[in-house]
Design a binder for these strands. Structure first.
Length: 414
RNA sequence: GUGGAUGUAGUUCAACAGUAGAACGCCAGGUUGUGGACCUGGAGGUCGCGGGGGCAGCACCCGUCUUCCACCCCA
């Protein structure tokens, strides 16, 4: 038997898991401060719910199988389609607008690569049922405030309006068809990565004549902000986001086909791998299960990139390197074990995380080594000397210092 | 799905076709009441897996899987 994790799946050992939870908790607190509420949906859905919602590629990458009841099921592929299902299924029970955040794993049977896994965490926040620009501004603000809360100082919010692209359709001179548009958008989306020339090549390769491709490209490049965008820009500032951080970028495209209005991406200065968040308005998507269209706007954090960027910029507080255990109570000997158990209970009853070493036969040296390795701040020792005086020795492993105190005074020390 | 690399001790890596090694980590002792240093000793390897040619394979050939990187696509 090979002991290993499945391709594209990961373990998170305590040090890494703590960091992830720190980020998750921070995001939750910001989301909730704006009135977003948690939503959880099942890992498995009926296949027909998910099938065909993500295009050809998506169908290929979806984990699908038959369960023991012979039902055709598929694993959560993103959080937007389940959201649409929930909105349709509980339409009358949910407050509208429905503001929810969702932080769950999604599964894609994609080939692995740097920063790409088969199970990964998505952090979405969306507002369903509002077409107000205030909602557009709010999701941008929530994303920006989240980053600030995590310690990011320098980042850039690029925003654009998909209308820029749909206007191309209306423009007779370019005679671009609805069918050609997604490919053009995908090509332009790569601008930063591959440069203008390659983008032109790709548009042309998609079957559009060179002059026409150039015309399309230039039309986009010199677009002015739409009225919607100007409105949103203004509101975002009122939400307390530094205007210098927000920039209109007509060449911002975002690959996903379903965006209808606002689109935005956030790039962190000093982290070049890519954007850490992205989102936009998708007024025609939620309605795929309901009997009517319901507008929506939202965004998602690329969780792994967020972690990576924080790592590179050193934004994790020391806390995340430290054990959640505050005190390790050592056991001096089997005979004195009772005293240690009692002490551990006492510390715990005072709301401090306290761990009792679980083998009284181990040497004190080994017990303290354990505490040190685990990053525990204090070690408590109760031996014959302490018992005689009815005291306890508390050792600070950080500053290599220790003192012997009365039990009542213990809490003042730690 | 396509292409390129990769796999040897817990970890990071060595080893000309001819007896598998180092560093760090781990364990024990030095130090039977005290962690990060030091000294001494020790344990630990189906050389990813399967096949092939060869007197002989960790090394060569084929297949397969893993991991990594890129493309496609995407977060």
């Amino acid at each position: 038997m090979n002991i290993q994790t499945l391709k594209g799946f990961r373990d998170f050992l305590p040090a890494a898991a703590r960091k992830r939870q720190y980020v998750i908790n921070t995001l939750k607190s910001v989301f909730e401060s704006y009135g977003f509420e948690p939503l959880e949906t099942p890992t498995l859905e009926y296949e027909e719910i998910l099938a065909g919602k993500y295009g050809q590629e998506g169908d290929k990458l979806m984990y699908k199988f038959k369960d023991l009841g012979e039902r055709n099921v598929a694993m959560r592929y993103d959080q937007t389609v389940p959201l649409a299902r929930v909105v349709a299924q509980y339409e009358n029970e949910l407050p509208m607008p429905f503001k929810r955040y969702q932080i769950q794993n999604v599964f894609r049977a994609d080939n692995t690569q740097k920063g790409r896994f088969r199970e990964f965490l998505q952090c979405d926040a969306d507002i369903v049922g509002s077409s107000s620009p205030l909602s557009d501004a709010e999701v941008i603000a929530v994303a920006a405030k989240s980053l600030e809360k995590l310690g990011f100082e320098k980042f850039k919010i690029l925003i654009n309006d998909r209308a820029v692209f749909s206007n191309l359709l209306a423009d007779k001179r370019q005679s671009i068809t609805e069918k050609e548009l997604p490919a053009v958008i995908r090509a332009i989306d790569k601008l930063k990565k591959i440069g203008k020339d390659k983008v032109m090549e790709e548009i042309i390769a998609g079957g559009i004549a060179p002059e026409r491709a150039m015309f399309i490209y230039q039309t986009i490049e010199f677009q002015k902000p739409t009225k919607q965008i100007r409105e949103i820009l203004k509101l975002v500032q009122q939400y307390g986001i530094d205007a210098l951080k927000v920039k209109f970028d007509p060449t911002l495209a975002r690959g996903l086909d379903y965006y209808t209005g606002l689109i935005f991406e956030i790039e962190v200065e000093g982290y070049s791998v890519g954007s850490v968040a992205g989102g936009g308005r998708f007024d025609n998507l939620i309605g795929m299960f309901a009997d009517k269209q319901i507008p929506a706007v939202g965004f998602a954090f690329g969780f792994d990139r967020l972690i990576e960027a924080m790592e590179e910029l050193n934004l994790f507080p020391d806390l995340t390197k430290v054990s959640t255990t505050r005190v390790l109570v050592t056991i001096f000997s089997g005979e004195l074990m009772d005293k240690s158990i009692e002490l551990a209970n006492y510390i715990r009853s005072n709301n401090l995380n306290c761990e009792l070493y679980d083998n009284g036969d181990d040497k004190l040296e080994k017990q303290i080594k354990y505490a040190d390795k685990k990053g525990i701040m204090y070690a408590a020792i109760i031996g014959p000397e302490e018992i005689e005086k009815d005291m306890v020795t508390i050792k600070n492993l950080r500053i290599r210092d220790q003192q012997t105190v009365k039990r009542e005074d213990l809490l003042k020390v730690i």
